[in-house]
Computed example of a mutant assay.
Amino acid sequence: MKTVLTNKNISIRTRRRALECYIEPILMYGCEAWTISKQTQKKLEATEMWFLRRMLRISWTAKKTNDTVLEEAHTTRLLISKIRKRQATFFSHVMRREKLENLVTTGMLEGKCSRGKQREKLIEGLTDWLKAGKSLEAIEATKDRKKWRTMIANAVKQGT
């Protein structure tokens, strides 16, 4: 895909569309189950900017800020919000099923916790993104599809 994405004869809009259709699905494979920490988020944002810089043939030694690169590409950062949206739809699907996946996703399995700092759960990352307050509020909101969709739409609009 390098020859297509870096071809100056193809418009930037078409190249961006090719990136979204062919590269991003490979990058986001299985993202519904990821827990995105600050470090992971930074790496994903850096990857997104790397793709744009390669498409525009901007060298990494060129002193261009990410904002100017985004302006040249006529776009904004969308990767994290796409991933969060996919996670939210997957999460609501799992919560409505009320099977074993529900228990695993919420972390409400019986047994002892392991030593050390506990890993962040998917639900904790989603409640922060949706600004739902508590995780129980998010779980209850999944039962009402209309309310859940508006929560997701509001979070995507805020761009966090």
Rank of each mutant, 00 (worst) to 15 (best):
I58R: 07
R86P: 03
H74N: 09
K64S: 05
I58M: 02
E137V: 07
T35I: 06
T68R: 10
K38V: 09
K42D: 12
K85P: 01
E140Y: 13
K43F: 14
G30V: 00
R57L: 09
K121P: 01
L70H: 02
I58P: 01
K134R: 14
E120F: 04
K112S: 15
T47I: 12
T89Q: 10
G116L: 03
G116M: 05
A141V: 00
Q118F: 06
T68P: 01
R57N: 10
L52N: 01
L100W: 04
E98K: 15
E124K: 12
V94R: 11
A132D: 02
E98W: 13
S81G: 06
V94W: 04
G111F: 11
F51G: 03
R96G: 00
S92H: 05
M108C: 04
S81I: 11
T75S: 12
F90M: 08
Q41F: 01
T75L: 13
I80H: 13
R84P: 02
G116F: 03
L56S: 07
R84N: 11
R119S: 09
I80N: 14
K63R: 08
D128P: 00
W34R: 04
Q118D: 05
K134W: 10
T89I: 10
C31Q: 03
K112I: 15
L52G: 00
L44Y: 11
L103H: 14
M49S: 02
G133C: 02
R53I: 06
I83K: 06
H93K: 14
R77C: 09
W50A: 09
E32A: 11
K134I: 07
H93D: 05
T127V: 08
S37A: 04
V94L: 09
I139Q: 10
S81K: 14
S114A: 06
W34G: 08
E101Q: 01
H93W: 06
N66H: 10
K42W: 03
R84V: 02
L136C: 03
C113W: 15
A46S: 14
E32H: 06
S81W: 07
L56D: 03
M55N: 09
T89N: 10
E140V: 08
M55C: 08
R57S: 09
E98T: 10
I139H: 09
T75A: 10
S59F: 02
K64H: 11
M108I: 04
G116D: 01
A88F: 01
N102M: 11
E71L: 07
R86A: 05
E48C: 11
C113T: 12
K112D: 15
G107F: 11
A141C: 00
